[in-house]
């Protein structure tokens, strides 16, 4: 049994699920063309961003990368609710590492939207904020684990 607050891990799991749904929506839009939307807003949006040459990385649509990343974060966060380690590695470390990669990737994508494409996609911005939220929770969890180790040493 884990003897510390599971709140950061629960929050990370919820945020990862929301991110997974967000990336799932963007993937649908990518696969099906326009989906629910009706209007091209002034200044662009997800269609502009997703039809740009920057919407794929090494041939893989960024939305699909997002689905994979969020799915991995969700699995890790859910596992962390009942385990502290998998295969001998601390889950809190794995979670923080993966979330850090996600935040850096989001930062790069945000830069592309603002600095290069010149259009902001609402659901991409939401994804970046969710990544930041997950990273914050992962950092908090890591500190709790450290504090616990420090206390019991």
């Amino acid at each position: 049994m884990i003897e510390r607050s599971l709140y950061p891990r629960m929050a990370a799991a919820v945020l990862a699920l929301l991110g997974l749904l967000d990336a799932g929506y963007l993937s649908l839009e990518r696969l099906l063309g326009d989906t629910g939307g009706l209007v091209c807003p002034i200044g662009g949006g997800c269609v502009t961003v997703q039809s740009s040459t920057y919407a794929t990385l090494l041939g893989v649509p960024v939305a699909f990368i997002g689905v994979t990343g969020y799915a991995a974060l969700l699995v890790l966060a859910l596992l962390s609710l009942s385990n502290d380690r998998i295969a001998g590695v601390r889950i809190s470390t794995l979670l923080l590492a993966l979330a850090s990669v996600g935040v850096l990737f989001s930062l790069y994508l945000s830069y592309l939207q603002v600095g290069v494409i010149g259009a902001l996609c609402y659901w991409c911005v939401v994804s970046a904020l969710l990544e930041l939220g997950i990273w914050g929770r992962a950092l908090l969890d890591r500190r709790l684990v450290r504090a616990e180790r420090g206390g019991s040493a």
Partner: peptide
């Protein structure tokens, strides 16, 4: 919600 969007499209 995602399924609805996919079907509607």
């Amino acid at each position: 919600a995602l399924a609805t969007i996919a079907l509607r499209s």
